[in-house]
């Protein structure tokens, strides 16, 4: 009984986490929350887990719960990967801004405009200051 409460609490935590992530990664959020809810169901009705496990050729119901947990873990890792990708995007935007601003600010002789055409469309001309 204690194990059931502990597992339920952990799986409920996953459901909350998946719900919080839904906006950023809808597919991962749905899959993780679905897997966690299935896990909760099997924790409280292990006989169904055993029947399904036998049907799937896994063996014991406990093994099925374990596999569900592994799937959840992989989905959480995938979500972390996506979050890192998202952070990298922000860093890229920032680095790009820094690079272009430096090009605007630093006046290297080799990069000065060679043709003398001034910018009349955008109001900025980095050819003069790169």
């Amino acid at each position: 009984m204690i194990a059931q409460f502990v597992l339920t609490a952990m799986l409920a935590g996953i459901v909350l986490y998946a719900w919080a992530q839904y906006r950023q990664s809808p597919i991962v959020g749905l899959l993780a929350s679905g897997a966690a809810l299935i896990g909760i169901y099997f924790v409280w009705i292990p006989s169904h887990a055993s029947e399904l496990a036998a049907l799937a050729g896994i063996g014991r119901g406990a093994d099925l719960v374990l596999y569900v947990w592994v799937v959840i873990s992989l989905l959480v890792i995938l979500n972390l990967h996506l979050k890192l990708t998202s952070q990298l995007e922000l860093i890229t935007v920032l680095a790009r801004r820094v690079a272009i601003d430096q090009a605007l600010a630093v006046d290297l002789p080799n990069n000065r405009a060679r043709d003398g055409r001034s910018s009349d469309k955008s109001g900025r001309d980095i050819r003069r200051r790169v």
Partner: peptide, 15 residues
């Protein structure tokens, strides 16, 4: 690149 007449924009690190 600058010596050959290009405008150079330099990323602070590899992106």
């Amino acid at each position: 690149a600058a010596d050959h007449g290009a405008i150079v924009i330099k990323h602070p690190f590899n992106l």
